[in-house]
């Protein structure tokens, strides 16, 4: 296969892409359906990843209880972020979530080095998970993926399917109807006797837990957790993927994330080949600039998308066009 097909294919389906798909699915519950601005999805993924890694490595917790600890961590984090802010205007949640995410990242970078190992990160927690792999005896790669990646991908994409199904069922229920109404006008919902605060908290917890599952998959895919994975970029890229797919649509995060990664690596390949041809002077395009140039190109593509198709790939134009105010 030529590089410009095989590399985007690989990157678009890889364990890292799955962790972003799940992070964006969580954001879809928060932002797409409930209108909550969570700028700290990285924190939920970090709590998932670190809870899994540290509890196995430092405390010898078995694999499954370690996962449950990660989910519990996400619930606690949602309560910390949500209880003080969800009664207030939407902006306050945004401020608190981005601050909490940065505080968490700085704590794991600089403190409790015995457990978090600062920038080196935590590794050595994948043994149990790998021992369950049916691909252990496989030789070589399958469709560019190593046996280890394949096992993470099997589990990861299964989680994506199950959680998409859960989201689909939830947003088509009366519960989802309340969320969509809160997104539009929470006072109207309150006047009809619904406890808006409780629904917002439920949505924050659910989306946060899905984000933590994304953290599990990312950690297992890399076989380590490092603080630099969970910068604010993580959250904003997940938001970008969601908006690319069309917020408020069940499959938006999946398609958005895969398309985003594939596009990003396609650009890297194309720009790389272009610079090898030396048609352009090095001051404009050389191998060291490709990393930044491809993000610039994605940025331009997103701007065009927002101008000509603001509802994203899947969004419904009618939902955007009609505005009561």
């Amino acid at each position: 296969m030529p590089d410009f097909i095989s590399i985007p294919f690989h990157d678009g389906l890889s364990p890292i892409a799955i962790s972003y798909v799940l992070a964006a699915m969580g954001l879809n519950i928060h932002f797409g359906y409930t209108g909550l601005l969570n700028f700290g999805q990285a924190a939920f993924a970090a709590v998932g990843g670190y809870a899994l890694a540290v509890s196995i490595v430092s405390f010898d917790v078995p694999f499954i209880p370690a996962l449950l600890l990660g989910l519990l961590g996400a619930v606690i984090l949602s309560l910390i972020m949500g209880i003080p802010t969800l009664r207030l205007r939407a902006d306050y949640l945004a401020i608190v979530t981005i601050a909490v995410a940065e505080i968490l990242r700085l704590v794991v970078t600089t403190s409790y080095k015995d457990y978090f190992h600062a920038r080196d990160g935590v590794s050595g927690f994948t043994e149990t998970f790998r021992s369950w792999s049916p691909y252990r005896s496989m030789d070589g790669n399958f469709l560019t993926f190593s046996p280890g990646d394949l096992w993470v991908m099997t589990v990861g994409w299964t989680m994506v399917v199950l959680l998409s199904l859960l989201t689909y069922l939830l947003v088509r229920s009366p519960w989802g109807r309340v969320l969509k109404s809160i997104r539009e006008d929470e006072d109207a919902v309150r006047s009809l006797g619904k406890n808006v605060y409780s629904y917002k908290l439920q949505a924050l917890i659910l989306g946060g837990m899905i984000g933590a599952i994304g953290g599990f998959v990312g950690a297992l895919g890399l076989a380590s957790v490092q603080p630099d994975t969970f910068t604010t970029d993580f959250t904003f890229i997940a938001f970008t993927m969601l908006i690319l797919g069309g917020a408020g649509r069940v499959l938006a995060p999946v398609v958005g994330a895969v398309a985003f990664w594939a596009l990003l690596s396609l650009l890297a390949v194309l720009l790389g080949e272009l610079s090898d041809l030396s048609w352009m002077p090095d001051s404009l395009l050389d191998n060291t600039r490709i990393g930044n140039l491809r993000f610039a190109a994605v940025g331009i593509a997103l701007m065009l998308l927002m101008i000509y198709r603001p509802q994203g790939i899947f969004g419904d134009k009618k939902e955007i066009a009609i505005d009561a105010r």
């Binding site: 109404s181 539009e184 006008d185 309150r190 006047s191 009809l192 006797g193 009609i322």
Partner: peptide
């Protein structure tokens, strides 16, 4: 709370109507 008041049987409308236009 306002939502409890509504459930008790005292329901209000708004000066600027609050229909949920995207539903």
């Amino acid at each position: 709370s306002a939502s409890k008041v509504a459930r008790l049987g005292m329901v209000r409308t708004f000066q600027l109507t609050k229909v949920l236009s995207k539903l």
